[in-house]
Amino acid sequence: MTGQRPDDETFLRSHLADLPRSIDPPRDLWPAIEGRLAPRARARPRIALYRLAAAIALVALSSAVTWYVARRSDAPVAVATAPVDRAGLARLARAGDIMEQGLGSSSLAPATRAVLARNLVVIDSAIAECQRALDADPGSPVLAGLLRAAHRQRVEFLQQAARLPRS
């Protein structure tokens, strides 16, 4: 019995390789799905009032975060001697998350969204890399400073995105 098993597996391998990973449904299922989405789903950014509210909220949020970041970035730059401020890092990360959530519900052109996403990947990778290094060397003020700077760059980049002309 076990002698036969590899044969079946090998036999099927070429068939599996040819198997389409994707099969289009015979009809568009989206209208039916959309009709079943919970009320949260009805938040459509095409509604002008929603857009206006989102824009106002984003500007307000951006201003609040600007104050926060400006307050922090005016500090002396001698990061090599700065203590590791984990709570401050967490606050900065949270501010970025809130900005990103706010931006997600705003109405930007697809091409702009793609540029945003591409650059967020660059920043997020830098944050992850600094975080890993800091995890390995938790007392390093240099790494903490670099991580903090990466978080601040994320917030400032999202602020820039919030100021962009809407589509």
């Binding site: 990973r21 789903a41 938040a43 706010g102 793609a114 996403a117």
Partner: peptide, 26 residues
Amino acid sequence: ALSLEVRRAQAGDADAFAALYRAHAG
């Protein structure tokens, strides 16, 4: 673009979720 669509859909954007459906329905 997909990553941003996911984030927008998480924030409640049904149009972004529709785009995710189109990308993954097959």
